[in-house]
């Protein structure tokens, strides 16, 4: 798949940072405002897909390998399950929210109805892990399919 015209490339380049920042905001504030790891990850992945479409998969293939995406996804998944495993070590149960009420990061105890960015316990951590995983996973799917199709077009 080749890239599109210069206009599309420029506009995609301009809007891309905004989309990514919005997605990261959605991930980071998942426990406060609507959104979370999945939604933010999906938003970032769509931004990446936009770049992929604008610049073409051939260009993208020089920048990133499907290996790396798969690796990134594994890392996200392992991070998620590790937080869950820490629940056994520190909280006594798998998936225990052991950080709430401690002095650690995100361990603040919310006063009535006033949680802020420093509360939520394991939730923000899981949000980050899932966000990473979803970005890598969803973009990986689009990327691999685009690559496969462009390869087929070449051979045909």
């Amino acid at each position: 798949m080749n890239g599109m015209t210069k206009i599309v490339k420029t506009i995609a380049g301009i809007s891309f940072p905004f989309i990514v920042i919005y997605g990261l905001y959605v991930i980071a504030h998942g426990h406060l405002t609507p959104g979370g790891g999945f939604q933010g990850g999906a938003v970032v992945a769509s931004g990446l897909a936009l770049i992929l479409v604008a610049y073409g998969s051939k260009w993208a293939a020089t920048k990133i390998k499907e290996h790396d995406l798969s690796l990134l996804e594994s890392v996200g998944a392992i991070g998620f399950i590790t937080v869950a495993f820490f629940g056994i070590l520190f909280g006594g149960v798998f998936f225990s929210n052991f950080i709430v009420g401690t002095d650690l990061l995100f361990g603040g105890i919310p006063l009535a109805g006033a949680a802020d960015i420093n509360t939520g316990g394991t939730l923000p951590l899981m949000n980050f892990a899932v966000g990473l995983k979803v970005i890598a996973g969803l973009f990986g799917i689009v990327f691999i399919m685009a690559l496969a199709i462009s390869k087929k077009e070449e051979s045909a």
Partner: peptide
């Protein structure tokens, strides 16, 4: 219990 304002995320 969870320290989150977003019910769905919790």
């Amino acid at each position: 219990e969870t320290g989150a304002n977003n019910g769905v995320t919790s």
